[in-house]
Design a protein around this nucleic acid. Structure first.
Lengths: 112, 112
DNA sequence: AATGATTGACGTAAAAGTACGTCGATATGA
DNA sequence: TCATATCGACGTACTTTTACGTCAATCATT
């Protein structure tokens, strides 16, 4: 993102946009869903599920971690990734409140 | 986006990612909020609210229209933009169901 | 110790996004 | 009619994202 210009906006909007950006790729959505479907936060085979190269998947994982939506702990040679419930909660809270703010006035007048 | 590779994913995920991408910029979030705050779907002065050049704002408006979140009708020299309630509903429905799908298993085990 | 597997870090090429200037078309008002 | 204003279309410079190959470090296994 053109970081420079983003500073002109409300922090709330910046933060929310940042969250949405983390979700703006099908691979990342798939990863999140996959992690949610696992009762144990087992990982590493994410690579086998996502139809992309290993390094690319890793890059998406890094993005998600940076966004605070997942967390990963390395033990031994393998790394365990799992959802960061805090981040998911944040997404729910902020996202919902934004969506609700859009519910208000629709085009009841004849203008559009 | 690398459109080519996106076809490898579920249509649902692609569509949702597309929606989120439309929200992945503070200017676009601000525009949506602004439109929602207007009882009449009056516009054109969006440019005055968003701290960016006119052409850039217009570009963001085009993005939002492409995503189906707003609609615009030109009358005379001016153009009226307003929320597309259908698109907003879609965002609410799909977005919520996705977020809910993330609620499930957190890291209750000691792995992470 | 040596081999193989896992994974993050780094580099890079191609694609997409961002921001803006300019132009032309249309329309409002003097 | 002429000047002015609005706005979409187009071009463009710059940044970011995406996708992947390669490398090095770490660990498990032999």
């Amino acid at each position: 993102m053109p970081q420079a210009k983003n500073d002109l906006f409300d922090e709330d909007l910046q933060e929310l946009a940042q969250l949405y950006k983390a979700l703006a790729h099908p691979a990342r959505l798939q990863i999140l869903k996959f992690l949610a479907s696992r009762d144990a936060c087992f990982c590493g085979d994410i690579t086998e599920v996502v139809p992309l190269g290993r390094t690319t998947v890793n890059q998406h994982l890094t993005e998600l971690k940076k966004a605070g939506l997942i967390q990963g702990t390395t033990r031994g040679a393998k790394t365990n990734y799992c959802l960061n419930q805090q981040g998911v909660d944040k997404l729910n809270t902020h996202g919902l409140s934004f969506c609700n703010s859009l519910q208000s006035k629709s085009c009841e007048s004849s203008n559009c």
